[in-house]
Computed example of a mutant assay.
Amino acid sequence: MNAPTEYYEHGTAAERWARAQLFFDAREYATAARILEPLAGEAPEQLAARLLLARAYYHSAQLTRAERELRAVLERWPVEDYARLMLGRTLERMGRPDEARPHLRMAAAMAGEFPE
């Protein structure tokens, strides 16, 4: 869907958040990301918007952007295990398994999953 930029920026933050979630649920990940980008910039303290943006980037194969967003999330929330897991998966998908491994191990440990 190629709507004008104004479409993504129109409405309250809550309306744009709801619109982004609808596009994400419809697997229109790139569109969801375009809506979420300004939201994340307006309210960088909102973890949910930042994580959904990272997921939208990941699912739309914008892996460099996903990595950048996840690293920013982890800088602000270093104990966010889901962001740590997503960063590991993103790095794996980018063909960087050695960089991914410590993030995946840490995410598992933070979630209480220990190897036997």
Rank of each mutant, 00 (worst) to 15 (best):
A3T: 01
P4S: 02
T5C: 00
E6T: 04
E9P: 01
E9D: 08
H10K: 14
T12L: 00
A14Q: 10
E15P: 00
R16Q: 01
R16L: 00
R19G: 01
R19P: 01
A20C: 02
Q21W: 09
L22C: 06
L22D: 15
F23R: 04
F24D: 01
F24R: 01
D25E: 14
D25V: 00
R27V: 05
Y29V: 02
A30E: 12
T31R: 02
T31G: 04
T31W: 02
A33I: 01
A33L: 02
R34E: 06
R34A: 07
I35V: 15
I35D: 02
L36C: 04
E37F: 00
P38K: 03
L39K: 06
L39D: 03
L39Q: 04
A40K: 00
A40E: 04
G41T: 00
G41F: 00
P44W: 03
P44C: 10
E45N: 07
Q46H: 08
L47E: 02
L47D: 01
A49T: 08
L52A: 03
L53M: 03
L53K: 03
A54W: 05
A54F: 06
A56R: 05
A56F: 07
Y57K: 04
Y57M: 04
Y58P: 03
Y58E: 15
S60Y: 06
S60W: 05
A61E: 15
A61P: 08
L63N: 13
A66R: 08
E69V: 06
L70S: 13
L70N: 08
R71L: 15
R71A: 13
R71E: 14
A72G: 10
V73P: 05
V73L: 13
V73N: 09
L74N: 07
E75F: 10
R76E: 10
R76P: 10
R76Q: 14
W77P: 02
W77C: 06
W77E: 07
P78C: 09
P78F: 09
V79C: 07
D81A: 15
D81C: 08
Y82I: 15
A83T: 05
R84I: 08
L85Y: 14
L85F: 11
L87S: 12
L87H: 07
R89Q: 12
T90H: 10
L91D: 08
L91Q: 12
L91W: 13
E92I: 15
E92W: 09
E92Y: 15
M94H: 07
R96A: 13
P97M: 06
P97W: 09
D98R: 13
D98G: 10
D98L: 15
E99P: 04
E99N: 12
A100N: 11
A100R: 06
A100V: 13
A100K: 09
R101H: 05
R101D: 12
R101Q: 11
P102A: 08
P102Q: 08
H103A: 10
R105W: 11
M106N: 11
M106R: 15
M106Y: 07
A107C: 13
A108S: 14
A108V: 09
A108T: 05
M110K: 02
M110V: 05
A111I: 07
G112E: 10
G112R: 07
